[in-house]
Design a protein around this nucleic acid. Sequence first.
DNA 1: AATATATGTAATATATATTTAACATAATGT
DNA 2: ACATTATGTTAAATATATATTACATATATT
Lengths: 64, 64
Amino acid sequence: MVNKIKLARIEKGLTQAQLAKRVNATRQTIGLIEKGEYNPSLNLCIAIAKELEKTLNDLFWEES
Amino acid sequence: MVNKIKLARIEKGLTQAQLAKRVNATRQTIGLIEKGEYNPSLNLCIAIAKELEKTLNDLFWEES
DNA sequence: AATATATGTAATATATATTTAACATAATGT
DNA sequence: ACATTATGTTAAATATATATTACATATATT
């Protein structure tokens, strides 16, 4: 399963480092979130979503 | 502005303590989230949304 | 071959979310 | 009046998200 965040980031033509800078995070944090090994804060999720022109549901929600 | 989470919780007929228990959090944490003074973790947001039968966007997303 | 870029990963430090415990108040029921 | 329930709030302790620094690798470019 390829990550939705990674896909959205690549669609926007951004590197991990570029996205990190725009959301005031580090490259490492972005990498871990994309790996799905993280439990990021709501504010960071919102910042990422806005930067990638997606919503929270688009990137972080899965119907079960 | 009354909180969307508080509204959804009351609609479900739950107290802060009851919701807290169901999402493995404390009453205080729920209270602070409802006050909007908190930056909760994504996992907690997801747990709250599922328990209240809402989505992340319903409770935590605002168009700007 | 050498350099630059993008990403993976690990150790330690720091900031902050969350818990625990406690006390306060308002509302309700007996 | 008394007890109970729901919520507000605060202080200190604990867990964990995030930053910082560093090194490694793979790929592309010159």
